[in-house]
Structure formats: structure tokens, C-alpha cells
Design a protein around this nucleic acid. Sequence first.
DNA 1: GTCTATATGATGATAGAC
DNA 2: GTCTATCATCATATAGAC
Lengths: 191, 191
Amino acid sequence: MPYSPKHKEQTRQRILQTAAKLFCSKGFDRVTLKQIMKQANMTHGAFYAHFSGKSTLYEAALQFATAKGFWARKDKHTETKDTHLKAMIARYLSWSRPNDNNPSPLEFLVTDAAHQDETVRQTYQECFDNLVNRLSSILTKRGFNAAQSLAEETMVSLVGTVSVARSIQETQRAAFVSRAKARILMRLEQG
Amino acid sequence: MPYSPKHKEQTRQRILQTAAKLFCSKGFDRVTLKQIMKQANMTHGAFYAHFSGKSTLYEAALQFATAKGFWARKDKHTETKDTHLKAMIARYLSWSRPNDNNPSPLEFLVTDAAHQDETVRQTYQECFDNLVNRLSSILTKRGFNAAQSLAEETMVSLVGTVSVARSIQETQRAAFVSRAKARILMRLEQG
DNA sequence: GTCTATATGATGATAGAC
DNA sequence: GTCTATCATCATATAGAC
């Protein structure tokens, strides 16, 4: 019995991880199954033992990226609450480079979700709300008044910043993100 | 002489306009030349009498959309400066529906530009800076201090709002945009 | 300049050996 | 379960008639 169920599950996870990376940096249409399978150390044909098609994989990869979303984990236990918040912002903004390898659920979604069907948009909705709520609860603990609104505003700014940063010239990117980051943090400080 | 140079130019403009619309609502990869030419009332083959390829058309359509950008024209001469500003915001946010027919230069870019080469990103850069500068000059006239920074912040929020709005569920869209709009206007009022 | 018809290439998906 | 080989489809692009 050369192939255990455990082995299959591991392979599936490897495909998902690779797919999430690639979908994130290139978008749905510019990623081929061949590419994904090659980077996952398999050949094209093996794909259909795990997923029924590209669309199915897309949704699965999307949930995979969301579940492992970076907001879930704190960086280090030694972080104070304040630096934790700043670290989250910084981490999100680190996705500004289009070829970044870390899958950013929201960015990889905002690129494609608008053109996908309602099912995909529902997943996006859940993901976005999730992030807003987590951020909101952090802000509430820190004594902000309109935490929910401020959290949503912050998330919108983050998505906008990363989206624009990815689309402009490479030479201007760092400065642009730096300015945006300063404004977002300032807003969070003054409430 | 059945085909005048003027006729060719008109045809070219028709292709550009159609392409801008389609690229805006569907993105680069999900639009085919066949579609574009069909909607422009021609057949596929006639395309290459006007453009050398799809990429060339993309850049041209991009500049076309930018040149006709809505920030350029005021809505009505009767608008006060204040309502003009609000009208601009509202008009931008009206692009929140993914299948909207009006080509929004920034949104149709933010969807694709990140995956295109540096030439396209340079065009995006110019377009974005252009909008920031126009907004900034309006804010300056109205006596704001950090007009440039506020303008950039506003543009980022607008792009983020439209991007997210297009990706979430249809039922949530209007309320989401409404909240975002209120926050953006509030920021602009309090400087 | 626009048409019809076709070449060329790539992609998603399937068939069958191991 | 994974491989190799192949199919079917669709997209860009070209060729040639009008």
C-alpha cells in the first residue's frame, strides 16, 4: 500500500498552499494548473485525483488562505498590545509587492472576486468581515468609541493601499506605502 | 475611395471605447478580442488593421479611459464648489458595481495593472498621480493645510472602497458603500 | 479596411498504463 | 495516486479575397 490516506491529504495541502501563493500573486486567469502542479512537485494529470477542476481549487485555496490568515496569529508573545496592532498593519502592508510569495487573502481576492460568481463573493464577504471584526475587537479593548467603524475604515485603507501600491511603478512603491502607513497609524492613534 | 482616414479614426475610437468598457468590467484576461470587435460591430479579423495586438490595445484603452476621466469634467456649471467635490466622490463610488458599464480607469487598472509589465504600471502611476493632484488642487483652493496628503488618503480610500464593494455580496454592497462614503466626506470636512 | 478562413499555440480536462 | 499521452476547446494572430 504505497499511498496512504495521510499521504494524499499531505499532497492536497501542498497543492492548496502552492495554489494560494500563485493565485495571490498572479490572479485566477494567469495561473495554470500545470504551473501549480509543477511547483507542487507533480505533473499536470495528477491534479484531478484531488480536485474536480480549477474553479473548485480556487475556492478551496481561498478558504485555505483565509483560515491561515495572518490576523489570526500574534507575532510574538512578548509584543505589547500596541506593537501588536502596529505589527498587524505593517504585515498587511508588506503585501504591497505584487510578486510577494505570501498569499494575502484579501488582495488575491480583490483582484478576482469581482469577476467571479456569488459563491466566491460570499467567501470574500466572510473573510473581510472577519478581519474587520478582529480588528474592531482589538480596538474596543483599547477603549475606542466607534471601533467597528474605525476598523472598517482601516481595512478599506489597507486594501486600497496595497491595491494601488501593486499597480504603480516599483520605484515609487516604498515611499507611497510609507506615507499611507503613517496616515493609517495616525488615524488609529487619534481615534 | 470607400474608406476615408476619418472613417478609420472613428472606427479606432469605437474599438477603444468598447475595449475600455470591457476591460473595466471584466479585466484583461477575461475579455477577448472577438468580444470587443463584436460589440464594436466588426469581425475579429479587422482588429489588426488598428492595433498590433491585445497588449497594445490595453495600454491604448487605458490612456483613453484616463483622458476621458470623470475628474476632468465638472458635472454642471451650476454646481457650487462644495457640491462639486461631493459629486466627484459620489461619482467615483458609483463604480462599485462590478458590471457597471462606465469604465473607471483606476478600478480597471487596479484589477490588472499589478500583473502587467512596468510600462502599464507607469501609465497607472501617471493616472493615479493625476487624480491626486487634481483633488489636491481643489482642496488647496478650499483652504486645507495638508491638501496633498489628504488628497492621496482620499484616493486610497476611494480605490479601496470600490475594490472591496465589487468583491462582496450584492446585498451588502449599498450599505457598505454608504458607510464608506460618509466616513470619507467626514474626513474631508474636518480636514 | 473589412471580411472569411485558417494556422498556431496554450489551456482545462480525460484515458489508460503502472 | 501519479504518471505519460492525448483530446477538445478556445484565444491570438495571420493569409488572402473583395
